[in-house]
Design a binder for these strands. Structure first.
Length: 577
RNA sequence: GCGCCCGUAGCUCAGUGGAUAGAGUAUUGGCCUCCGAAGCCAAGGGUCGCGCGUUCGACUCGCGCCGGGCGCGCCA
């Protein structure tokens, strides 16, 4: 229900508690309201009597009976009736006007409905995808892109100024590996040949990079431009070219997927700017390091880690987690009091390490910093068998493949359709459950993707509104002023009540780092709409004028909520399909 | 072996400690002279992995098992 309606009801119950002498001294009770699963149990249910019975040492049913009697003795307002049920539930029926209030508010606030004022909450960063530039983005990155972008949009809806950031590990051993792989291809070698590097990446795309490098092409990524020297002996040039090439490829796929980043942060810059050395110095100055076996260690066990960690290897280079700590110190210093990192659950072991490093540095970073949203990997099934995701073997389904397959082609319209289907599908699962993505099924039955069910509801509404007035968008004010009292059918009231929950759903999904809640919610809205639409007696255009206007208002409000929810999920809301 | 996560309908998955555990899909049967049938209505389908606890009340919380995933590098 609308926050305003909820406040009124909670206040009414609190007043009733006071009148029947059920308020315990001191602590104010938290009055929780929930929606019963069974319609016969009313619109709302409150278990406060059972909660209080314990501390008051009273019979919960008797207490509830007193509260019910008191509520029913009050003048009719938001609450139409109260009744006692079960072991002490207080079931409430809402006045029709209270159920319909959301429709008016939605039409008045438009895109702002359910959203907090921009800037009303603090600056926040969501870091996600952060794929190594050693190959194309795969399905797992797609899950992360869909999750991270939706999460960022949820925070924006809650009033945060959100920075979407992509961290590039462009300085480690895997990059050296990439360079060696491309170099081998430049020399005409292929996987399996004598002299082919042991740990090389075997995918065909490596050969493509080599060909462009030898052809002295120039590649451009988000903020860099690299010209190939064409010299197969120049490993440094190969490395820079290959990284830029793959960043470029990833950029294209991300754009196709509708995911944009505000900032790309390069691991190499942490070395160049001296931030890695700074972090090491801070840890050493705090007395949290020691030398052993020619290596420098961090006493991370003092901060909950399983074992102490090597920071600087005996060969003088740093382990990956040192720049990681330096990076998070930089995030904190950049003013992000809250950071959420979206990562695959295979990296969960690093969480304790990074947090320990931040604590040990003694810079005043809070203990739980940063937050993590971990997700399980996607198992891709193709032809009845699992496709193992392996960059080295080069055998995996890329994000781009998936978008093209789901959309039925590589044209702009097909890509847009594929993007909607894949994003909605990937967001429709709780992050920490694994799920099986059957490529053949996605290819064969694209129309069964729930996204079309939701989009279809939006297109249907638009169709009716167009039939009413081709210029309907300009007449939203008329609909917003409509008298809603003709809306009395059970399905109409159910839909209106579901629409009223949008602000709470957004707030809950942001709080719980659970974008899938919003996907399920908007599906439910579409279901409530389709059910109503199919009731012959609820047809709109043929109804009497007052009835027609009230129903059009409900339709327009439904379209608004569907559009707002899909926008957060990064999915389009077409007016025609 | 230790740590984290998961186990719910044939399959894919929802389920802030509440009442009779839900949806999609698949199967079966209905609904277009009427605003978009990419839709609606209905039926069948369950030992919520197993056991013991906490609670007025457990799919939900705790402990122990069983099964699966991931992590336990001077790799990232």
């Amino acid at each position: 229900m609308l926050p305003a309606v909820k406040q009124e009801i909670v206040a009414a119950i609190a007043a009733a508690l006071a009148r029947v002498g059920a308020l315990p001294a001191g602590a104010a009770p938290a009055i929780a309201l929930e929606r019963p699963k069974v319609a016969a149990h009313g619109d709302l249910s409150c278990n406060i009597a059972m909660q209080l019975a314990r501390t008051l040492k009273k019979n919960p049913r008797e207490l509830a009976a007193a509260i019910v009697a008191d509520l029913n003795a009050q003048p009719r307002g938001t609450i139409d009736a109260a009744e006692l049920a079960g072991p002490g539930f207080i079931n409430l029926r809402l006045a029709r006007a209270a159920k319909l209030r959301a429709v008016t508010e939605i039409l008045a606030r438009g895109d702002d409905f359910g959203r907090a004022a921009p800037g009303s909450a603090g600056a926040l960063m969501v870091e996600f995808v952060s794929a190594n530039p050693t190959g194309p983005l795969h399905v797992g990155h797609g899950r992360q892109g869909a999750l991270g972008d939706a999460l960022a949009a949820l925070f924006e809806a809650r009033g945060h100024a959100v920075t979407r950031e992509f961290y590039y590990n462009d300085a480690g051993a895997q990059i050296a590996n990439l360079a060696v792989s491309v170099q081998a291809r430049c020399r005409g070698l292929a996987p399996g040949d004598p002299g082919w590097p042991e740990a090389a990446y075997n995918g065909d795309y490596i050969a493509d990079i080599a060909a462009d490098f030898l052809a002295r092409k120039t590649v451009r990524a988000a903020d860099i431009e690299v010209a190939a020297s064409g010299d197969a002996d120049d490993l440094d040039s190969i490395r820079r070219f290959a990284v830029a090439y793959l960043r470029h490829e990833q950029d294209i796929d991300l754009r196709t997927f509708g995911v944009r980043f505000d900032n790309y942060y390069l691991e190499s810059s942490l070395y160049a700017d001296g931030k890695v050395e700074e972090a090491v110095a801070a840890l050493a100055a705090a007395g949290k390091t020691y030398e052993e076996g020619g290596a420098l260690w961090l006493r991370s066990t003092e901060y909950g880690d399983d074992k102490d960690r090597v920071m600087r290897k005996s060969d003088g280079s740093y382990t990956y987690f040192v720049p990681d700590v330096a990076y998070h110190i930089a995030k904190w210093r950049r003013g992000f009091a809250r950071v959420v990192n979206v990562q695959g659950s295979d990296h969960h072991g690093t969480i304790a390490r990074v947090r320990a490093g931040l604590q040990a540095a003694g810079l005043g970073v809070p203990a739980g910093y940063p937050d993590y949203l971990l997700h399980k990997m996607v198992t891709v099934m193709k032809g009845g068998a699992e496709v193992k995701i392996s960059k080295r073997a080069g055998s995996y389904v890329t994000l781009r493949d998936l978008i093209e397959m789901a959309g039925g082609g590589a044209g702009a319209a097909e890509l847009a359709r594929g993007r909607d289907a894949v994003r909605f599908f990937l967001i429709s699962r709780k992050a920490d459950t694994e799920f099986v993505f059957d490529v053949d099924l996605a290819l064969k039955t694209t129309d069964e993707n729930p996204v079309y069910y939701v989009q279809y509801a939006h297109a249907r509404i638009a169709s009716v509104l167009r039939a009413w007035d081709p210029q309907w968008a300009a007449r939203r004010g008329v609909l917003g002023a409509a008298d809603l009292s003709p809306l009395a059918h059970e399905r109409e009231l159910a839909l209106a009540q579901a629409l009223a929950e949008f602000p709470e759903v957004v707030a809950g999904a942001a709080r719980d780092l659970a974008p899938h809640d919003l996907a399920f919610y908007v599906r439910d809205i579409a279901a409530a709409f389709h059910a109503l639409y199919n009731e012959r007696e609820l047809r709109v255009l043929a109804a009497a004028e007052e009835v027609k206007m009230a129903r059009l208002a409900l339709y327009a409000a439904t379209a608004q909520v569907v559009r707002s929810a899909l926008a957060i999920l990064g999915v389009s809301a077409p007016e025609q399909m």
